[in-house]
Design a protein around this nucleic acid. Sequence first.
RNA 1: GGCGCUGUACCUAAGUGGCUUAAGGGGAAGGUCUGCAAAACCUUUAUUCGUCGGUUCGAAUCCGACCGGCGCCUCCA
Length: 469
Amino acid sequence: MQLYNTITRKKEEFRPLNPPKVTMYMCGPTVYDYFHIGNARSFIMSDILRRYLQFKGYQVKFVMNLTDIEDRIIKKSIDANKSADEIAGLYSDAFFEDIKKLRVREADLYPKATLHVQEMIELIKDLEKNGSAYNVDGDVFYDVKKFSGYGKLSGKKLDELEAGARVDVNEIKHNPLDFALWKKAKPGEPSWDSPWGKGRPGWHIECSAMSTKHLGETIDIHAGGNDLIFPHHENEIAQSEGVFKKQFVQYWIHFGFLNIQNEKISKSLGNFFTARDVLARHSAESVRLFFSQTHYGGPLNFSDELLTSAQKGVDKIINLAERIEQLLLLDNENGNVPSFNIQNFLTEFEKVMDDDLNTPQAVAVIFDFVRSANKIIDENEKLSKKSLIEMKSFLQKTAEEVLGIVHFDELKKNNQPSLEEDLLKLLVDLRETLKLEKNYKLSDEIRNRLNSLGIILADSKTGATIKRK
RNA sequence: GGCGCUGUACCUAAGUGGCUUAAGGGGAAGGUCUGCAAAACCUUUAUUCGUCGGUUCGAAUCCGACCGGCGCCUCCA
């Protein structure tokens, strides 16, 4: 499998350190607000990467941090007159609700920054000890000049950065590019005791501390949004490699931005949708298919219209899935076994996904399959159970397990016995009789009125099938 | 100024030297099936890949110039 590695700017063969184990770290949310649809893209694409690695047989340990202490949380807590903990708790809960709705599978671990302050202090102490960090009256900074590899991820050179650096108001730093490892507490702010006095950790140190603690000193994959490349991930490298003197991350994966009308999502432009807003109007499956139809690394425009057309695609897959499920109920042990080489589709799916997670092509393979499967169902009066199970299995492995765009156990079933079902059956049977008598006026009225109740009747040679909206 | 991404049909988006005289989804048009409708299926919808040159037996794919769009360069995924 090939993955594009940001640090080498090349596609590389993926070779985890200890196969079949894979360690994967994803920069999670700062829990100061609901996350937006652009964040959702990163969460979903990292989920698909993780699921695909599992599809390939890897045992993935997937860790996503929660930043629950940070400037914006403190600001919000002051504005809302609540404690920082309350704010963080509120939006952590919202985060978990939203990713669950988006069908992002639970990580193995969601470490919180506030529960790893001690580990961060240890790292900062080590950096201070080996001369990479300096303390200015309770604020501790990383001295970027002490790390020769600084800039290797983002492709920036230290002197160019310095030349382009904007004037920094913080004159206590030795160099404008130095970044905070430890921030001295201001009155009223949450703080922890440390060798440098009361304060709180800087933003970058948490990821170094937590990924090392839970995944080791060198991890296989570190993922996040494009904008984290600089300075966040650059600084993580400086911190971790500055202490452990070994490679921090093997493969850096970065997700492209989601734009609205070709512009970056931002609150000031007012083009800001939270994931919850979007989920109120669209299904998680349509969101996931929409993201899958573009390569993860490139930019992507978002609009309601595009999600609506993605939903049509989802419906197409669901329609086939329901068709298969209904035929499976018929129990045709001796049906036809058409020549339909499903293995070819699976091979193709894996081939394109192996190429740096080419989900647009993978989706194309699934739709090619859908067309072929529908055709075969149309052409065969009776299909063997074996054939149907193979079709179902293909969709489960690809569309369900990897992409998460269809869910077989949630298909609307209509075979549970109930009075409502029996009455519906009665109506359908009566309508069949009316149709035989060519009383189309009344039979159409029944169909229309059921339709307005959310029940869709579709006539076929073998009788009407019932679907619900 | 530095670094990076990007320009493919009505919308969207793969493809980065011959397997594709350009996938897939949406939309549109015609057809099959049906009493009709829906679904499904079939056909059609880019001789062309921002523009102009060049390299090559061969280019959307490589090189050059030019014209657009976007992002990063202060804690924003």
